[in-house]
Amino acid sequence: MTGHPTLLSAAGIGKRFGGVQALTGVDFTIRHGEIYGLIGPNGAGKTTLFNVLTGIYEPDDGSFTFDGQPLVGLKPHEVAARGIARTFQNIRLFANLSAVENVMVGRHVRTKAGVWGAIARDRRTRREEEGIERRAHELLEYVGVASRANDLAKNLPYGFQRRLEIARALATDPKLLALDEPAAGMNATETASLEALLHSIRRDGTTILLIEHDMKLVMGVCDRVLVLDYGKRIAEGPAAEVQKDPAVISAYLGGEVALNLKGA
């Protein structure tokens, strides 16, 4: 990647739901080509931050700058067009589309043919659609779901569904891939192969923003980590440092336990 060393910067992001302050003044920057972790206890605001970033919610305060340009008031599909793709904590595939069709939806934003193409079936449209399908199969191969390409998404095993979500997100050619707990519910083997997949995605030039509860995975892949608690940033930095931060320990284990540990 060329140009800006910073891919995404967030300045003072705030989001309220009625009386609940879900996010307060969250700042962070993500550099090109890194794997950036986002951790915090349940309810800390991690998924809300994802939703604000991807245009599902409007932030009440603050702004994002993505790839040198402000990211304000865009609709989800426009955010996707700018180069941010995401997966979901609870899998949200198109259950009744086949695996390959799920990925083809992701290509939508990078292709042009519209309704006239669909009706006229001209050469350009047909070639484009062949291209979409070819790319979708490549991506399935990449994440290791190629063997089940024509199965309906709902019939795939859980680990495959998680990977399929990643393939669908990759199909939008994102600059930033935002993964919301990709390892949730995975066994150790599945998590290990996910880790390998994340490394190879990064190697191929995509920056990753990762929400994850599996600390082993976070420590294994993330260059830097942001820790949220009650919607506020409580720590940021390289994974190994953040892990030792007393504020982080107290957020995860509760204040008293942290004190006891210190005393011991």
């Binding site: 996707a80 198109f94 449209t125």
Partner: peptide
């Protein structure tokens, strides 16, 4: 067609379809 996949995706989950770049 591509439009058809977008239609089916939207019918199954409009929010996710939007996030995948479908207007």
């Amino acid at each position: 067609t591509k439009l058809g996949i977008a239609m089916r995706a939207t019918s199954q989950n409009p929010v996710v379809a939007g996030l995948m770049g479908v207007d």
